[in-house]
Simulated scan of single mutants.
Amino acid sequence: MSDIETSTVSEEGYASTSQAGDFELTIDATNEEGPTPQQVLVADYAACYLPAFRVGAQQRDHDDLGKVQIDADADMNDDDDLTAIRFDIHVEEDVDDDTLDEIVDRANGICHVHDALKESLHADVTAHGDAF
């Protein structure tokens, strides 16, 4: 028995609809009917990294970071393959740079998407405290 099951269907063209549990997502390689697969991967990575960042903070005795926002950007080569991902993390709470570095190190070990990607695509992360 699998831990995760999804179904992805394309009736025609380059758009597809993916079903994951009760949720449906349209993904389109042409970026006309939905985000591209690369955009979804970067957003998924950030969506996994953010709670890992919060857990890493809790493990470093920072239980309330307030609002946390990840601005992600990525580079692609001429074949539309991802070559680099960067996260700029903004934290509402005033957290010093050394502690933020410790939280990032811990989040790297917690985030399942980070673990699943090849090392050359691990996000280059910059975190900022007292950001809002």
Rank of each mutant, 00 (worst) to 15 (best):
M1Q: 15
M1T: 09
S2E: 15
D3M: 06
I4P: 10
T6P: 07
T6E: 13
S7M: 08
S7N: 14
S7W: 05
T8M: 12
T8L: 10
V9W: 12
S10V: 00
E12P: 02
E12G: 09
E12R: 12
E12K: 12
Y14T: 10
Y14W: 13
A15F: 12
A15S: 15
A15K: 15
S16F: 06
T17H: 14
T17Y: 12
S18K: 01
Q19G: 09
Q19F: 07
A20G: 12
D22G: 09
E24H: 10
L25R: 05
D28W: 10
A29E: 04
N31Q: 08
E32P: 02
E33A: 09
P35S: 13
P35A: 14
P35H: 12
P35L: 12
T36Y: 11
T36H: 09
Q38S: 08
Q38I: 00
Q39M: 13
V40H: 14
V42Y: 14
V42P: 15
D44T: 11
A46G: 14
P51G: 12
A52H: 12
V55L: 15
A57E: 14
A57V: 07
Q58D: 12
Q58A: 12
Q58K: 14
Q59T: 05
Q59W: 10
R60V: 02
D61H: 11
D63Q: 07
D63T: 02
D63H: 07
D64A: 03
D64I: 01
D64N: 04
D64K: 02
L65K: 09
L65N: 06
G66Y: 12
K67Q: 13
V68I: 02
Q69C: 03
Q69D: 11
I70N: 06
D71H: 05
D71V: 00
D71Y: 03
A72V: 00
A72L: 02
A72N: 04
D73H: 05
A74V: 00
D75V: 00
D75L: 00
M76P: 01
M76F: 04
M76N: 03
N77R: 08
D80E: 11
D81Q: 06
D81C: 03
T83M: 01
R86L: 00
H90L: 04
H90F: 07
V91A: 07
V91R: 05
E92P: 01
E93S: 11
D94M: 03
V95Q: 11
V95W: 10
D96H: 07
D97L: 09
D98K: 15
T99E: 13
L100H: 13
D101L: 08
E102R: 14
I103E: 07
V104P: 04
D105Y: 10
D105N: 13
D105A: 13
R106N: 09
G109S: 12
G109E: 15
G109V: 01
G109F: 07
I110W: 14
C111P: 12
C111F: 13
C111R: 13
H112W: 10
H112D: 14
H112I: 05
H114C: 02
D115W: 06
A116N: 10
K118P: 07
E119N: 09
E119I: 01
S120D: 08
S120H: 05
L121G: 03
H122Q: 08
H122I: 00
H122E: 07
H122G: 02
A123S: 05
D124W: 03
D124C: 03
T126L: 06
A127N: 06
H128P: 00
H128G: 00
G129I: 00
G129M: 01
D130F: 06
F132K: 06
